[in-house]
Design a protein around this nucleic acid. Structure first.
Length: 275
DNA sequence: ACACGACCCTGTTCGC
DNA sequence: TGCGAACAGGGTCGTG
C-alpha cells in the first residue's frame, strides 16, 4: 500500500462516519499495536468522536475530537471497510463500533501493518513519524532540499533512496520504478551521483506519477481495493512495473523492460532510455 | 556509521 | 493434480 492507495482509501471512506462517537473497540491482533499498550489505545478511542481523516506518508490518520488520532500503517495488505456488521472476521485487525451502529473494520491479511495512538499536536515527534521525510507535494520540498538530502547516503542507489521514507514519504516499490522510468534515470545509479538537473526531473516525476495514480484511484496489481471495495485504475498505466520482457512503452525497445533485484526487492526499468 | 540479511505473516502463482 | 518454491503495494532489528 503506497501513498496513492492510502489516499484513495481515505477518500472513499463514507464522510458520514466522521462526527460519530466510538462506542466499542475490538482489537484482534494486540501485537500489532505499537508505542502504547492495547489498553491505552482502547482508552484513547472509547467515547471519542471521529473528527476527520488524514494521511502522512503511508500512514492513515483517524482524527479524534479529543486531540488524538488513531494511526494506521496498512503494510502490504491493509484494507478498510465500513458496514452494519463485524463480518467477515477473517483477517480482521481491529474494529470500531460507532453510535449509529455501524462498524469501521480494519483488515490486515499479512499482519505487517501497525496501529497506534498519537497526540495530534505532537505528531512529528511520534515514533511513527519522527524519521519521515517531506510529503511529495510539500512546497518546502525543492530540488535544493533533495540535493542536500542525497548527501546522507554514501552508497545507496536512487531506487533504494526512493524506498527510504526519510527521503520522501510515501513512495513504495511500484511507484519507485515508475517514477525512475518517467525521469529516465537508471535505478542502479548511486543517488549521490545524480546532478541537480536529474534531481529536478526526479522531483517532477515523483509529483506527476503520484498525482496521476491518485487521480486514477491507485494501482490494483494484485488485490488492492479502496474503502468501497473498488479497484484502482493505475495498473493500466504502468510503464515498467511487472512488465519484464515487454517492449518499453517510451522508446519501443523490444524485450525492453528488465527486472533486477535491489535490497531484495524487484526493480523494473528500461536499460535503453534510463541512464 | 553504515550495509546487508533475516525476519515478521498469509495468500497466490509458478515450475517441476 | 500435487507440492514446494518464489513472490507480493513494508519496515525493523541484529550483525558484521
Amino acid at each position: 500500500m503506497e501513498l496513492p492507495e492510502v489516499e484513495n482509501v481515505l477518500k472513499t471512506l463514507p464522510p458520514a462516519l466522521a462526527r460519530r462517537h466510538i462506542r466499542q473497540i475490538l482489537i484482534r491482533f494486540p501485537e500489532r499495536v505499537f508505542h502504547c499498550t492495547p489498553a491505552a489505545l482502547r482508552r484513547g478511542l472509547r467515547g471519542a468522536r471521529l473528527a476527520g481523516l488524514g494521511r502522512r506518508g503511508k500512514f492513515l490518520l483517524f482524527r479524534l475530537s479529543n486531540g488524538q488520532a488513531l494511526v494506521w500503517h496498512l503494510g502490504m495488505s491493509g484494507r478498510v471497510a465500513a458496514g452494519p456488521s463485524l463480518s467477515p472476521r477473517k483477517h480482521l485487525l481491529m474494529a470500531m463500533k460507532l453510535d449509529d451502529g455501524r462498524f469501521i473494520k480494519l483488515y490486515d491479511a499479512r499482519r505487517f501493518g501497525r496501529i497506534g495512538l498519537a497526540d495530534l499536536r505532537a505528531l512529528p515527534s511520534h515514533p511513527f513519524f519522527r524519521r519521515l521525510g517531506p510529503e511529495y507535494d510539500d512546497s518546502q520540498l525543492t530540488v535544493r532540499v533533495l540535493v542536500q538530502s542525497t548527501r546522507r547516503f554514501r552508497k545507496k542507489s536512487v531506487k533504494e533512496a526512493l524506498l527510504d521514507q526519510s527521503f520522501v514519504a510515501g513512495l513504495g516499490n511500484i511507484y519507485a520504478s515508475e517514477v525512475l522510468h518517467d525521469a529516465r534515470i537508471d535505478p542502479r545509479r548511486p543517488v549521490r551521483s545524480l546532478s541537480s538537473m536529474e534531481l529536478r526531473r526526479l522531483l517532477a516525476s515523483i509529483r506527476s506519477v503520484l498525482d496521476d495514480a491518485i487521480a486514477c484511484g491507485g494501482t490494483s496489481v494484485r488485490d488492492y481495493v479502496d474503502a468501497g471495495g473498488r479497484k484502482g485504475g493505475y495498473q493500466h498505466r504502468l510503464k515498467v512495473y511487472r512488465r519484464e520482457g515487454l517492449a518499453c512503452l517510451r522508446c519501443g525497445r523490444k524485450s525492453g523492460v528488465v527486472r533486477s533485484v535491489q535490497s531484495g526487492r524487484s526493480t523494473f526499468y528500461c536499460p535503453r532510455c534510463q541512464r
